[in-house]
Amino acid sequence: METSAELLYLLKFDKEHCFGFKDELEQSELLQWLLFWHGSGAPYQRNLGYFRRAQEQSDFAIKRFRKETYRVFGVLELQLSGKYTGQTKDYLAGKGKGKFSVADIGTYTDKEMAEYPHLLEWVERIGKRPAIQRGIGGRYKQ
């Protein structure tokens, strides 16, 4: 997962809109999802992972961060499922099915999604991209 600051910097030089949008409303939607994940999902998911690996695990902390992570996953699931728009989305931002953007790069995650089928499909779709495969390749695994 890239930091939001890096991704916003990438957008500054994305003159062909490979990772962003020309349309102002779509660009606004991209920024909303990127910052939603940055401020909500990422911190909870990181804390959940930390307390799972801690020597003296705290059941309270694990339950709390799991609950918050799942709450954020639920919001992402709603967006991708199209529950309120009537159309499922392949990506978080953009008209129609959406378009791969920094909102997807910044939000991409790969854990605990069995209860969120649209989110799981999205993770698989993003994970199959060649650049993502290179980024999560074996040389980066601990």
Rank of each mutant, 00 (worst) to 15 (best):
R134V: 14
F13E: 13
R66E: 13
G74Y: 04
G98W: 03
F51E: 06
Q45D: 04
E6C: 12
V75N: 03
Y9H: 13
M113D: 11
G137R: 08
Q57C: 07
A131E: 13
A61V: 04
L8S: 14
M113C: 07
T88K: 13
T3W: 04
L92R: 02
K67D: 14
A114H: 01
S4A: 15
L10K: 12
L92V: 02
V123A: 15
E121W: 00
S81M: 05
Y9C: 08
S4C: 09
R125H: 00
G41F: 12
G74D: 11
L8M: 10
S28E: 11
S58F: 00
L80S: 04
G82E: 01
R66G: 03
W33T: 07
T69M: 04
L48R: 04
E16N: 12
N47P: 02
F100A: 07
E2S: 15
G138L: 09
E124V: 11
Q32I: 11
E24N: 06
L25E: 13
D110M: 11
L78P: 08
L119Y: 01
R139Q: 15
G94C: 01
Q32S: 08
P117G: 00
E24T: 14
H118S: 15
L35R: 00
Q57M: 06
V102K: 02
C18Y: 14
R46M: 15
E24L: 12
A5R: 08
F65T: 00
H17W: 02
E26T: 06
E16P: 04
L25Y: 10
G82C: 03
K15A: 12
Q79H: 09
D59I: 05
G49P: 07
